[in-house]
């Protein structure tokens, strides 16, 4: 945790500097008759962020904050594996949306999570993976008129059938 605390502070300091540079693309001072420039607000806030990371680093050096005193690892083996499996699963879920549609990606994610990670029965897994996307389809497309991504053209015939049911 101790090493992680200072690395995080360092990354956030770099982010603050980047935000300051990016903000300064617009005027950061006071423009007579117009008030503060468009970049002033984010620039000075980013400057405060940079100062905060400096104080966080000082507290780390002085070992006053709980993470800076901790000898525990940031994440143990379980934590890293959980993050890899769940975070990775979420990443693939979102990546698949543009390929096999929101509903298809949802079904794949549910099969992956409930069936493989949760090790539940195939009956429960497939029930959830089939019923939930259908319920979501009718709720969003039918009731709320919110169109979700449909993925690549090969999904069209399936959605044509579904839309015929709605309209």
């Amino acid at each position: 945790m101790r090493l992680g605390e200072i690395i995080t502070a360092g990354v956030l300091a770099l982010l603050s500097i980047y935000l300051m540079v990016k903000s300064s693309e617009l005027e950061i001072g006071y423009i007579s008759g117009e008030g503060p420039g468009g970049g002033a607000w984010p620039f000075w806030l980013s400057a405060i962020m940079l100062i905060c990371t400096g104080v966080i680093a000082y507290n780390w050096y002085k070992r006053t904050s709980p993470p800076s005193q901790s000898t525990e690892p940031l994440l143990d083996r379980y934590g890293w594996m959980m993050l890899l499996k769940v975070g990775g699963g979420l990443f693939l879920f979102i990546a698949l949306i543009d390929v096999i549609s929101m509903y298809g990606a949802m079904a794949v994610f549910l099969i992956y999570y409930v069936g493989f990670l949760g090790r539940h029965s195939w009956f429960l897994t497939l029930s959830l993976a089939i019923i939930l996307p259908i319920v979501f389809f009718f709720f969003f497309e039918g009731l709320m008129r919110i169109t979700m991504p449909k993925g690549l053209p090969f999904t069209e015939p399936f959605f044509n059938v579904m839309y015929e049911i709605i309209y």
Binding site: V114, L117, R119, I146
Partner: peptide, 23 residues
């Protein structure tokens, strides 16, 4: 939790898209 968690994640992703409709 292995049933609840994926439901929450699915709701989050769908809700996140529905808010602005932008991937």
């Amino acid at each position: 939790f292995t049933v609840l968690a994926p439901l929450i994640f699915v709701l989050s992703v769908v809700g996140g898209f529905a808010a602005t409709r932008d991937m």
